[in-house]
Amino acid sequence: MLDKLLGRAALKSRLAELEDENERLRKRYEAESERRSEAVTDRQEAEREQNKLEDRIAQLEGELERLRERSRDDTTGSALEFRRRERMGLAETEAALERLESVRTGPEGALTTLAGSDHPRPDALESVLDERASLVADLEPCVVCADDMGLVSVALVPPIEPELEASAVWDDRFRLDPRWFLPRGRFTLALVRADLFALGVYEDDDRVEFHGFESDVKGSHSKGGFSQGRFERIRDGQIADHLERARDALTEQVEGPLYLVGQREAIDRLAEKSGIDPAERATVDATGKPRSALEDAYSDFFRTELLVF
C-alpha cells in the first residue's frame, strides 16, 4: 500500500522490465560474440584452404604447360621422350646416388655433365646420347650421367643447382656431389607465405633451431563491408607488415646457405624489398601451423627428379 502511495510500485515494475531486457541483451551479446569467434575461425580455415588451392592450381598449370609443350613436340614429328620420370624423396635419392656411385668403367668411360635450359649442351653429351641429348634442352639445371657403352643414361634434377669444375667430366666413375641432392652441412630453410613464416636451421638432416609465426592477413574479398580497392590496400599492408617481420627474422637467424621456399610471389617480394639473396628459391605446397608446414616444405624441397633416357 505504501509502495503504491509513494509511486514505488510503478518503479519496481519498470525496474523488473529493465532487468529482463538487460538479461536478454546480455544473452544476445554473448551469442553474437560466440558467432563472431566462430566466424574468425571459419575465415582463417577458409584462408588456409584458399592458399592450398592456389598452390595446387599453380602446380596443375605447370603440368598443363609441360603437356602442351610435349603435344607441340609430337605434332612437329618429335617422338623422343624420357622412358621414365620420377620425383624421389630423400631415401630414394640416396639409394639412387649409391647405385650410380657404384658404377665403374674404363679410365674415361663415365660422363658426368651439366645440362638444362641454362647450360649449353656439350658435344660429349651428343656423342653418347645421339638425338636423345635434345631431351635435356628444357630441363631445369641437371646432372647427366651416361657411360660410353650406353648401359647407363640418366638425368638428375637436384634441389641445389649443381656445379662442376668443367662442363663435362670423363672419368672411371660418375662424379656426383651429395650436397647437390641431400641436406648436408649447416644451412637455413625458410618457408614464406603471405600469412605464415617458418625458419629452421639444420645440421645435415637434423633441425637444430626453429622460429615461426602466423599473421592475420585478410582472405579473398567478399561483397559488403569494404570496397574492393580499400580491401586490397588493407590486405597489401598486412602482407607488407608480415614480410617485414620475416625479413627481421632472416636478418637475425640465418646460418649457412639460405634456401627460401613457399609462395613464389611472397618469396620474390621478400627478396626484392629486403635485398636478401637466397642460394635457392623454390615453390612448395606447405600449409598448416608453422612447425608442421616447415616439415612439409623440407620434404618437398629436398626432392630430386630422376629422368631415364
Rank of each mutant, 00 (worst) to 15 (best):
I267K: 00
D42W: 00
A39F: 08
R193C: 04
A194T: 03
L139W: 00
R132Y: 14
A190D: 10
P290A: 12
G212Q: 10
V136K: 07
Q253C: 00
R14E: 15
D73T: 02
E63D: 13
L80F: 05
F301V: 07
E19K: 15
G275Q: 12
E244R: 13
A249R: 07
D216A: 08
K12V: 06
V144G: 07
Q238L: 08
D236K: 12
G256S: 04
S117Y: 07
T41Y: 00
F226R: 11
Y298S: 01
V254W: 07
V284R: 03
L270Q: 11
G275R: 11
A246I: 11
D138V: 01
V201E: 08
A168Y: 12
R28E: 05
Y29P: 00
T76W: 09
Q59H: 14
S127W: 03
F187T: 04
Q228T: 10
A293L: 02
D172S: 11
W180V: 10
D123Q: 10
E49F: 07
E280K: 06
C142I: 04
Y29R: 13
G185F: 08
A190G: 11
E295P: 01
L306G: 02
L258W: 04
L11P: 00
F210H: 01
E280C: 11
S220R: 15
A10Q: 11
E94P: 01
